[in-house]
Design a binder for these strands. Structure first.
Lengths: 249, 249
DNA sequence: CGGACCCTTGAGTCAGGTCAATGATAGTGG
DNA sequence: CCACTATCATTGACCTGACTCAAGGGTCCG
């Protein structure tokens, strides 16, 4: 039964944190899994909202395009157990406000019909409470995003990103992906990383031996790649590039 | 009884749209009105969240400061019936994420204790539903804000603002206020408005005869003030400045 | 009249962005 | 194994929007 998998997934989804199994059962039964490959879209901005998705495997990037379509801004990258379009599902004008695409190659999501979700949430206090808490968290994140974009400059945002993601040695996303995440263009990411490298804030390493876990960087210029650390008042060093680990200094 | 006024206010607050009077009664009874004068703070970012506020009269500006404190970004300006700190009230780490201050001189707000609000919302499906819808709207607004800040340049944001607020002839906020709203500094607002004026996109008029409705602009440079129109693909003309009315062209 | 604010401007600086060329890598189909 | 193509990263040249600093004037209030 796929509804068992669905139930297990829903039980651990933060958006429903605190809900009891019986509350989630009806939703789990309506859920349908589907598999996407890297680059495939779950939905495009402007489409009518039909489903809310829970990531089961892989990861999904939610992003908006600039009017000209020349630039994009990544709003979220959701991994397993995270929800995509969780907010849109409760909006009255039911169109997705952003695009969503799979980032890795097997990416599996559970689609839940929005009507059923609304129904369940509105009739189950525990669910409603969980959703409210989730929305509040979400908005706090967005606010943080907002003022980092307005108040801090690129170097700072990049350094913050690197520090935040330096827990385990791992590969850096593509420069384009980083650019979309930080609200800029790939060229600037390259320059900044180069600068950090020259300053000794980061170390770099070929992606060579790396497992090709869904996405890996292609060519590498002159010196290979860098890795970074820094920030307004931050202090930390980085390690190997596509792969890196943090080291305090 | 002030609780009657409170109830009337709550019944028309969008955050509780759809709720029935009996659901709101307990909240209304716990509400306390207070009056602030221009510039006075309802709360500062970082303080523990104790109340959620519903504006009864006047208007409240919610804003964040940059780390250095040199710049500020206005997140919302809430008028009568609107809620301040509606999202913060449901966050687990209970500290206000922003500052809030009265914009006009009598500004009256109804303070509701957050515990009571949470209690009421979590136990009343109609309220929970209303709050969820409100949060979803709120997030959509924030998203719009986000990408206008990331994707469009100042002239465009200013024009958009002017168009959006040109319904009735009325005074423009201070340049500093506009700057905070649009994520920039007062000097640039002045330059851009001047530019729009020279282009004939806006007309201006001394604030002279204007009623001093809480805030009015002080001195006026050379030509007085401007008024604006323009935008990526927008078409509209404006009228007198501090006071203006829109005119299609 | 002095002080506190505002608005307006000129000058100068710089981060961030555009455009385009160069080199590499990985994957594909032979 | 190899030519071929698509995707990336890196850089130099150059442009410009946005910001800072500072000065000049106004208005309003006490």
């Amino acid at each position: 039964m796929s509804s068992e998998r669905a139930l297990a997934l829903l039980r651990h989804a933060p958006i429903f944190q605190g809900a009891q199994e019986p509350d989630l059962l009806p939703l789990a039964e309506l859920g349908r899994f589907s598999v996407l490959s890297r680059g495939q879209h779950l939905f495009q901005a402007g489409q009518a909202v039909e489903s809310l998705y829970v990531v089961a495997l892989g990861s999904v990037r939610v992003y908006r395009l600039s009017r000209g379509g020349r630039r994009e801004l990544t709003l979220h990258v959701e991994g397993p157990r995270q929800v995509v379009a969780g907010v849109a599902a409760f909006q009255s004008r039911a169109v997705y406000p952003a695009h969503a695409q799979a980032l890795q190659s097997p990416t599996e999501v559970l689609a839940l019909p929005v009507d059923a979700v609304r129904e369940a949430v509105f009739h189950t206090p525990a669910l409603a409470q969980a959703v409210i808490a989730y929305f509040a968290r979400r908005q706090a994140e967005l606010l943080g995003r907002l003022d980092s974009l307005v108040f801090s400059e690129l170097g700072e945002r990049l350094a913050a990103y690197l520090l935040e993601h330096s827990a385990a040695p791992h590969a850096l996303p593509t420069n384009s992906e980083l650019a979309a995440l930080l609200g800029t263009v790939p060229e600037l990411i390259s320059r900044k990383l180069g600068e950090f490298y020259r300053l000794g804030w980061i170390v770099l390493e070929r992606a060579g031996a790396a497992h090709r876990a869904g996405q890996r960087r292609g060519g590498t210029g002159p010196a290979g790649r860098r890795h970074a650390k820094r920030g307004g008042a931050l202090r930390k060093t980085p390690a190997p590039c596509p792969l890196f680990s943090p080291v305090l200094l």
